[in-house]
């Protein structure tokens, strides 16, 4: 009885590893280059397809976690509410006495225990509530990114520039120990954004 249960446990363990292995393979899959979309003749359809590809970055936990729809950012690949329970505060940099900078520094800092890190960047902060992505569809996020009232007043060209070169965006590809990076490279993400803008910046439905 006991031996059976243990054997079952061992089987489950092996299975668990196999599943985790698959997941890992999927996650290291990069971004498809702009050229991969050249075959789509209709510019609108091509634009939507490119944005959908960009969605692999935009909807990744590394990005969504700090684009919360509430005052509280999320944490980790499981996207649990940030613990300690922090709040965005009046300037999206935390509350008096517990600011983002109380824990987050200008760069990632690995824990001494060898497991994980506190992420960091000189400009570490939450996206303003107008730019919330948490819980939204890719189509909704796309509309939002195009809307100057909800994108920090940026033109589409400025959005492309932001995605290609902003170093806080770039943190997503270098998130520190214990965190899955977003797929591809920032350069690829920038190229996809330029191609999306060039193809008419169309948004997925829904």
């Amino acid at each position: 009885m006991k031996a059976g249960a243990l054997a079952l446990g061992a089987a489950a363990l092996t299975l668990g590893i196999a599943i985790a292995g698959q997941a890992r393979e999927q996650k290291v899959e990069g971004l498809r280059p702009v050229s991969a979309f050249a075959g789509i003749a209709d510019p609108g359809a091509r634009s939507v397809a490119i944005f959908t590809e960009m969605g692999k970055v935009i909807q990744h936990p590394r990005c969504v976690n700090c684009h919360p729809r509430t005052d509280r950012p999320l944490q980790g690949d499981a996207q649990l509410p940030h613990d300690p329970p922090v709040s965005r505060g009046p300037a999206d940099r935390g509350m008096a006495g517990l600011e983002c900078g109380t824990c987050h520094g200008p760069r990632n800092v690995a824990f001494a225990n060898g497991k994980g890190s506190v992420p960091g960047h000189p400009e570490w902060h939450a996206a303003p509530i107008a730019m919330a992505w948490e819980g939204k569809t890719l189509g909704q996020i796309c509309q939002q990114i195009k809307d100057r009232k909800r994108n920090g007043g940026k033109s589409l060209d400025q959005i492309a520039e932001h995605n290609a070169h902003d170093s806080l965006v770039g943190w997503g590809w270098n998130p520190g120990p214990g965190r899955t990076p977003v797929p591809g490279t920032q350069a690829q993400f920038g190229e996809l954004t330029r191609a999306w803008v060039a193809s008419g910046a169309k948004c997925p439905a829904g």
Binding site: P84, P85, S87, M95, A96, G97, L98
Partner: peptide, 23 residues
């Protein structure tokens, strides 16, 4: 943490205290 809070907020409310001391 409490001193750090009071330097910024002279008269913290209960929710200011909750926020500052949450960590």
């Amino acid at each position: 943490s409490a001193i750090g809070l009071l330097r910024i907020k002279k008269k913290p409310s209960d929710s200011d205290i909750d926020a500052a001391m949450a960590g």
